[in-house]
Design a protein around this nucleic acid. Structure first.
Length: 505
RNA sequence: GGUUCUGUAGCUCAGCUGGUAGAGCAAAUGACUCUUAAUCAUUGGGUCCAGGGUUCGAAUCCCUGCGGGACCA
């Protein structure tokens, strides 16, 4: 696979051979006992507590070395951070044979190698808490040289900034850039906070099919694959909505799923072909309840993730503290374009689009036109969390008709920093109405809209059994993660963003 | 998909209007028993993304392709 090895890679392979010839296994099998982490020692060690740090062991990667001849300093990095270690020749090798220090430690170990050390805590003359090494064990030899990043007083030198390197070799990015690790641990905290919020209220986390014979629940182009045994096409899900609603029909009052979805569309800094939407559905609730719940959940989630209800992205401070502003989509459009489109037909909307220089095509129906106007002229103005509510029925095929406003549905989108973060509604549970909406979608499909929905007869049958009034929501997890961690690119909140395959020559 | 920027050592980058490659870190060898971007000395390391073209001569100019970023649809 690898055509040629660099000089440094060749040297490391030679060291591997030499280690083995000395009887040292560069990839030993036994567990290594760890008593402390780097941060525990740095935070816990003091003159008063030194007795507790007399016999400690930790393991990590060698990140830098300062060779003073018969004594060396090195920096060891574990999952919590870094700590300086101090190693003296005559302590490691008290007898005549100095090879463990002179050969193994100084010559055969490299930056990036993973070692275990036993020793005791102490503070250097310059005041840095360190570990005095009494013995060390090679735990894993690294054959690939690590980028040599240095740091002083918080300033980073030779930082790896090449995005291609970071995304393709995330493992190396994680080793070398502590802030990347921090981003991802905060994302996990964020997801845990959401789970806690939902579980505490009776939510049941469930799994539903990723492979679907009818890709439903959203307007998007699916990936298609083929099942050999059944000899049928299958689609990777674009949403899990219709399955979660089936479970509401089945009697669960509150279900949720972090749904990995797949959409065969363009990629940019807010779109990856696979991404996660948290969807949850709650029986006997409506979209007004859902707004109250969502803002509460996001406030708690922000605090769990960042310690405060705010985060800063692109120099803008976002405050997730509830409650959020609510405005109808027609009022939003009126406010930002001056046009009152609430009573307009399709022709009128086309005229408005023309006047606003919004490109439209013949396949677009009334709903899509409203969507274009809002997306093009209004969305960007909503920086702090804002619920946009009461959408026209044409763009919401799974949403219950508004309880009082003709032609509208009970739906909201949550806009933060000018982008859609969540989409929710009082779920349509009238099976006859639902069938008509699907048939409407079929017409859009015939008109050339390749994102229109298929008719899912099994889902309609489920509705015919009776689905209680239900509120449902989908929240873009990566987008929320971007907001809460201050990253502007989806690639920075996915461990392994989609990339073109590398050409391995 | 369009426009534009970009690709040089393991990493970060320099290389002017064309004369066939340079620094720091990393690596190797040596010195140094409290250093911390350790220091000092010596040395090695490159299909300059790929393929064409222009030219006596291309990392450099032109074209095509590939990878990556940004903006737009």
């Amino acid at each position: 696979m690898q055509a040629t090895l660099s000089e440094q890679e060749v040297i490391r392979r030679e060291k591997l051979v030499e280690l083995r010839s000395l009887g040292i296994d560069p990839y030993p099998a036994p567990s290594y006992k760890i008593t402390h982490t780097a941060v525990q020692i740095k935070q816990g060690y003091s003159e008063e507590t030194k007795e507790e740090y007399k016999e400690i062991s930790l393991a990590g990667r060698i990140m830098s070395r300062r060779d003073m001849g018969k004594a060396n300093f090195a920096v060891l990095q574990d999952e919590t951070g870094t700590i300086q270690i101090y190693i003296k020749r005559d302590e490691i090798c008290p007898g005549e044979d100095k090879s463990m220090f002179d050969t193994v430690w100084k010559k055969l170990l490299d930056l990036g190698d993973i070692i275990g050390i036993k020793g005791y805590g102490f503070i250097t003359k310059t005041g840095e808490t360190s570990v005095h090494v009494e013995s060390f064990t090679l735990l894993t030899k690294a054959l690939h040289p690590l980028p040599s990043v240095k740091e002083k007083d918080g300033e980073v030198f030779n930082e790896v900034t090449d995005l291609e390197f970071k995304y393709r070799q995330r493992y190396a990015d994680l080793i070398v850039n502590p802030s990347v690790r921090d981003t991802f641990t905060r994302i996990t905290k964020m997801k845990n906070a959401i789970r806690t919020f939902l579980n505490d209220r009776g939510g049941l986390e469930v799994d539903t099919p990723v492979l679907q014979s009818i890709p439903g629940g959203a307007l998007a182009r699916p990936f298609i694959t083929h099942h050999n045994a059944l000899d049928i096409p299958l689609y990777l899900r674009i949403a899990n909505e219709l399955y979660l609603k089936r479970l509401i029909v089945g009697g669960f009052p509150w279900v949720y799923e972090f749904s990995r979805n797949f959409r065969n569309e363009g990629m940019d800094r807010t779109h990856n072909p696979e991404f996660t939407i948290l969807e949850f559905y709650v029986a006997y609730k409506d979209y007004l309840w859902m707004m109250d719940t969502t803002e509460k959940m996001l406030e708690e989630t922000a605090i769990a993730t960042n310690g405060v209800s705010t985060s800063v992205i692109d120099g803008v401070e976002i405050d997730f503290k509830a409650p959020y502003k609510r405005i109808s989509i027609y009022d939003a459009i009126h406010e930002h374009t001056g046009y009152d489109i609430s009573q307009m037909d399709e022709a009128g909307l086309r005229d408005v689009c023309k006047a606003l220089h919004i490109q439209v095509d013949a396949t677009m129906g009334k709903g899509k036109l409203v969507d274009e106007i809002f997306g093009g002229k209004c969305e960007k103005h909503y920086v702090q969390p804002t619920f946009i509510i009461d959408y026209p029925v044409e763009m919401s095929p799974l949403t219950k008709k508004h309880r009082e406003k003709e032609g509208l549905v009970e739906r909201f989108e949550l806009i933060i920093n000018g982008k859609e973060i969540a989409n929710a509604y009082s779920e349509l549970n009238d099976p006859i109405d639902q069938r008509e909406r699907f048939e409407e979608q079929l017409k859009n499909m015939e008109r050339g809209d390749d994102e229109a929905m298929f008719i899912d007869n099994d889902f309609l049958r489920a509705l015919e059994y009776g689905m209680p009034p239900t509120a449902g929501i989908g929240i873009g997890i990566e987008r929320l993660a971007m907001l809460l961690t201050g990253n502007v690119s989806i690639q920075d909140v996915l461990f392994f963003p989609q990339m073109r395959p590398e050409n391995v020559a």
